[in-house]
């Protein structure tokens, strides 16, 4: 599964994307797995309320199903306009 990071999440983790082997059922479970890896991931995922998640380029909740997903992205609340 491809995992993408944007804005300060990307900067904190230090990469724009990576391919991850996971059986996580939800974005929340995937975030837990990533946070357990290293300090920089733990820092990025420390405050889940400060993050949003998209699965296959659609905004979803952290407890949405991940089954069959090709792409998951973690990022802060959007600030366009």
């Amino acid at each position: 599964m491809r995992v993408l990071y944007f804005a300060w999440v990307r900067e904190r983790i230090g990469r724009p994307w990576e391919d991850v082997e996971t059986t996580a059922a939800t974005p929340a479970a995937l975030a837990d797995e990533l946070a357990a890896r290293e300090e920089r991931y733990a820092a990025a995922f420390a405050d889940r309320r400060a993050l949003r998640v998209a699965v296959d380029q659609r905004l979803v909740d952290f407890d949405a199903p991940l089954e069959g997903a090709r792409e998951v992205a973690f990022f802060p609340p959007m600030t366009g306009g």
């Binding site: 944007f6 905004l59 992205a73 990022f75 802060p76 609340p77 959007m78 600030t79 366009g80 306009g81």
Partner: peptide
């Protein structure tokens, strides 16, 4: 909707350092 539902993120570069704009 463009402000908070389209995936854009603003980063300001200021004399005191860069900062990601908070929603």
């Amino acid at each position: 909707y463009l402000k908070s539902r389209a995936p854009f993120w603003k980063k300001e570069h200021r004399a005191e350092g860069p900062i990601w704009v908070a929603a």
